[in-house]
Design a protein around this nucleic acid. Sequence first.
DNA 1: AATTTGGTTCTGTAAATTATGAACTAAAGA
DNA 2: TCTTTAGTTCATAATTTACAGAACCAAATT
Lengths: 157, 157
Amino acid sequence: MKLSDKQLELIEQIGIYHENNGFQPAVARVMGLLLVSDKPELTFEEITESLNISKSATSNALNMLLNTGHIEYTTFPGDRKRYFRIRTSNWRDMIMKRMDDLGVLNALLKRVLEVRKRENSEYDQKLLSFTSFLDYMKVQFPILIEQWEKENQKQKA
Amino acid sequence: MKLSDKQLELIEQIGIYHENNGFQPAVARVMGLLLVSDKPELTFEEITESLNISKSATSNALNMLLNTGHIEYTTFPGDRKRYFRIRTSNWRDMIMKRMDDLGVLNALLKRVLEVRKRENSEYDQKLLSFTSFLDYMKVQFPILIEQWEKENQKQKA
DNA sequence: AATTTGGTTCTGTAAATTATGAACTAAAGA
DNA sequence: TCTTTAGTTCATAATTTACAGAACCAAATT
């Protein structure tokens, strides 16, 4: 498994992106590798060797990515190896999870408005208006996705 | 500065939320406190005492939050203390930064499609379709915000 | 039966993060 | 001038994280 310099660089960049989103470094690199490699499916061995990480790090990373639904694997008859690949369905999930996270924030902010006491606060007006925006988003966002899917469908036809 | 049990609990929950979004623990608690306290503006001293953290932790947290534009302070003539509060304008920024982050992802994925070679890949079709969705989002999202602002304006009138 | 393969699990540890407390500073007040 | 106030800075201690390496295991192969 040869990787070009461009590929190696891109794996690092994608790695950093995922690190910023809470993945640990090795896990983030595995995601990068699976995205960037010429082959869409890689074995355990290929991953360890390409990234120069230990078997334990690879095992740990793959299992965490399997558990979180970011990757999946296939097998072939008469071959004990598993072939790992990114779950494409995961992109929609990823976006949705970001929305959910805003939902958590929204719930917390509403709780804030319940719990504490502030008189005639213009600040709380803004807070209320923000939560209402988050409510609006929660409704409108799925509609936005739907619209895009329609347009995308049209283009294919 | 007395805080009710409910307030203390909520500060922790908001703290955890912000930890998950990359803030360090003490910084996240300061954000929680400023949101949840009955007074909208707190002094350095009130923050240290309410959260039971050291002066250095407080200093560090406040400076970091000031630098990142999450909080601001006012002063009053003849009073050397600074009164810290959350910048409300920051909520729009927060949402926008999330969008920007998706922009970074989008750029990386486009780079992926350029850099590697995969034949007749249905996978790459999906990837392409995802980047096109991110493009769509980038355009539509500000429009969504605008629409909401219009509706919100109407309600006030 | 012995070995190889494809991993997993279990310490140990280097490095990074996060916070503390003490010493310090600059401005204001007595 | 001495003290207090409102913080900052520094050295360091306490966690936490992230990984390597070795031992281990079950299934397949020889």
